[in-house]
């Protein structure tokens, strides 16, 4: 029997249904659902609860569809990085074509159902977000520019706006403020992570900021973004969105964020890896001592964003009055 024939009868690794679920990046999906729900609730528009659940489901499925498209396209570079090499496509359990088909199907179904259940604006914004993540970020930006996660971060920032639009059919300034907070949060969050995973990014030739501009420049840029993010995080309290509790959480959280970013800027986190010494840790949190300021900011950034949106959500659920009336231009 020829070698070719032997290879052809070896069964491919069998994909289990869990592999298809993993293609949808459930952890990212949970953050998307959470921020979208906050946007929906902050719209303060009465909505049929069934349609609200369906709207959130559509956003979750749309996020999952775009994640599957991302994994289908990035299988070659995912295979080179420790954090991503066990994903279903690079590990050979799911064919890239199957992942792509799943992504396209889920994207189409989620947008169509969103249009049917809510309104055209929400469906259009969902379609735009999927396109932005799967094409603009994944195909055009990720391998081309160190600004990849800055511009591409818009896709991750839009869910609160989609949630808001699904409830109200509008996209007012308050919704865009929530988008802006996530948009400015994304670079310090991902760059802190990339400071201690840059070896993997370099191996995969992904032009992340520490790989292209070096760790020192990245640390300075993280601090700069944090200085813009902290006051913006407080702004919802003065624009008719947040109450006193939100103001306190955003002020304390923002101060903590800036303090950790300043500590990181003063550190040498990422320098060892830039010198060619590799961090052999498999975990995102168990890192070398020199990388701890980066790891601490990465971990705190998740807590910070979660706290802001959770406080907005809780205040709205408890019907806590916002500090100010909704801000209206020209009023």
């Amino acid at each position: 029997m020829s070698e070719q024939a032997v290879i052809s009868i070896i069964p491919a690794k069998a994909a289990r249904w869990q592999d298809y679920v993993r293609l949808l990046k459930p952890r990212v999906m949970s953050l998307v659902v959470f921020t979208a729900l906050t946007g929906l609730v902050c719209a303060r528009v009465p909505m049929n609860p069934v349609l609200a659940v369906v709207a959130i489901l559509c956003i979750a499925v749309g996020a999952g569809g775009s994640a599957a498209l991302n994994m289908a396209h990035d299988a070659d570079i995912d295979a080179l990085m420790r954090r991503t090499r066990t994903r279903p496509v690079p590990s050979g359990r799911v064919q890239a074509a199957d992942a792509r088909a799943l992504g396209i199907t889920l994207s189409l179904f989620s947008v169509a159902l969103m249009g049917l259940a809510t309104n055209t604006l929400a469906a259009g914004l969902l379609a735009f977000t999927i396109f932005f993540y799967a094409i603009v970020y994944t195909v055009w930006l990720k391998r081309r520019t160190p600004q990849n996660i800055v511009i591409g971060g818009l896709a991750g920032a839009l869910p609160p706006l989609i949630g808001w639009a699904s409830a109200s059919g509008t996209a007012p300034l308050g919704a865009w403020l929530l988008v802006a907070i996530i948009f400015l949060w994304t670079p310090p969050h991902f760059w802190a992570l990339s400071l201690y995973t840059q070896g993997d990014y370099a191996k995969a030739r992904i032009p992340m900021m520490p790989v292209v501009k070096g760790p020192a420049s990245t640390r300075r840029q993280i601090l700069a973004y944090s200085l813009f993010l902290a006051p913006l995080g407080v702004a919802p309290a003065f624009m008719g969105l947040g109450g006193l509790l939100y103001l306190a959480v955003a002020a304390v959280g923002g101060a903590g964020f800036v303090a950790l970013a300043a500590r990181l800027a003063a550190s040498r986190a990422g320098d060892a890896m830039a010198d060619g010494r590799e961090d052999v840790s498999e975990s995102l949190y168990d890192v070398a001592a020199a990388a701890k300021p980066a790891r601490d900011l990465f971990a705190f950034s998740i807590l910070y964003l979660f706290s802001l949106f959770a406080t907005l959500l809780v205040e709205r659920m408890l019907a806590v009055a916002p500090l100010t009336a909704a801000w209206v231009p020209h009023a």
Partner: peptide, 30 residues
């Protein structure tokens, strides 16, 4: 492989059924 395929098929059937139910419920709500 057969067991894995069966699992995938059940998931696909459940997803399609869920979609039909959701469209029905949305229609009633609208």
């Amino acid at each position: 492989a057969m067991k894995a395929r069966r699992g995938r098929n059940i998931l696909l059937a459940a997803a399609l059924f869920a979609f039909v139910v959701i469209v029905f419920i949305v229609t009633l709500a609208k």
